[in-house]
Amino acid sequence: MTDQQPLNDKVILVTGAGGGIGRAIALEAAKAGARVVVNDLGASLGGQRESSDAAAAVVSEIERMGGTAVANGDSVADPDGARAMVRQATDAFGRLDAVLNNAGILRDGFFHKMTYEDFDAVVKVHLYGSFNTSRAAADVFRDQNAGSLIHMTSTSGLIGNLAQANYSAAKLGVAALSKSIALDLARWNVRSNCIAPFAWSRMTSSIKVDSPEQEARVNRMKAMVPEKIAPLALHLASDAGADVTGQIFAVRNNEIFLMSQSRPVRSVHAGDGWSIDAVRERAIPALRAAFVPLDVSADVFCWDPV
């Protein structure tokens, strides 16, 4: 690690960093000069605790390559756990410069079969988890008059996907949360951005393969390694990214996208107000050409990644 590293002396908390995208970001952050808090609950894909070794294993990898890191096993879904991991960062390293909200679970199922428990668990980790860690970090960032929050959203929420009502709702909520944070904390030079990552990881390994088309899609995803997400994430965490806030990006292999955010696309007006009949006869026909189709993410990102 040299003085020329883009994250030299920065302290970064990465949640869900025991594997996949989180692990890749934690390792790359350390290579770029950051001191890293590696958080992982050691849970299964569905959120059941399995092992306490995941975070420690990544810390060992970082230390073997000459970096500095500490392990944390708290749950992002627990506000006390989120406060504990932020406190661990400041206790160990004296400050905290960025939080990458990456922790997540999946409990997929079609909406008419989804239980309250499966909806609640996924929203708690993704949306409440992002709130909990961001809220805990906000006090530190305000005192420092600087800080960066990077949240992992998903095209499942931004565009849509089958059998993921819980995950999609949480991930679209994360995008709205990020925008609100960016607005509320701008006066303290705190920025907040989202990334929708395309990468093969434990989260995407649960995709059902029930057709040749799905098999081909999964094979394309397997070529998109988690390390491809790290450069954008770590730029947003660096001082060089200090002028970027309130944005939603997507990363797919070697492509970086800026995603749109909801804005009016077409309007109709009735000077004397609308009746039910007028809506049927005039408003809907005039607006229909701009209706959003029932796309899923794969319909929109339908070309092979490069």
Results as ranks from 00 to 15, higher is better:
residue 88 Q to N: 13
residue 88 Q to K: 14
residue 244 V to A: 12
residue 47 G to A: 11
residue 124 K to H: 11
residue 86 V to E: 00
residue 6 P to H: 04
residue 275 S to K: 09
residue 131 F to E: 11
residue 280 R to Q: 14
residue 271 G to R: 08
residue 135 R to C: 09
residue 271 G to Y: 01
residue 51 S to A: 14
residue 90 T to Y: 02
residue 8 N to M: 09
residue 267 S to I: 11
residue 42 G to D: 04
residue 103 A to V: 11
residue 274 W to Q: 09
residue 132 N to Y: 09
residue 239 D to L: 10
residue 7 L to R: 03
residue 274 W to N: 06
residue 253 N to C: 08
residue 72 N to V: 00
residue 271 G to I: 04
residue 213 E to M: 11
residue 153 T to R: 02
residue 116 Y to S: 09
residue 258 L to H: 04
residue 39 N to C: 14
residue 94 G to V: 11
residue 284 I to P: 09
residue 74 D to V: 02
residue 193 N to G: 03
residue 66 G to I: 02
residue 187 R to H: 13
residue 125 V to L: 12
residue 254 N to K: 07
residue 237 A to Q: 01
residue 2 T to L: 13
residue 100 L to I: 15
residue 96 L to V: 04
residue 282 R to D: 13
residue 74 D to N: 15
residue 103 A to P: 12
residue 196 A to E: 03
residue 195 I to N: 05
residue 281 E to D: 15
residue 150 I to Y: 13
residue 268 V to N: 04
residue 104 G to Y: 05
residue 25 I to E: 01
residue 297 S to N: 14
residue 91 D to M: 06
residue 116 Y to E: 12
residue 59 V to K: 05
residue 290 A to S: 15
residue 236 L to I: 00
residue 263 R to E: 12
residue 127 L to R: 06
residue 99 V to Q: 08
residue 53 D to W: 04
residue 28 E to H: 11
residue 126 H to P: 09
residue 284 I to R: 13
residue 283 A to Q: 08
residue 106 L to G: 06
residue 171 K to E: 10
residue 30 A to D: 05
residue 242 A to T: 12
residue 83 R to V: 14
residue 143 D to P: 01
residue 174 V to F: 06
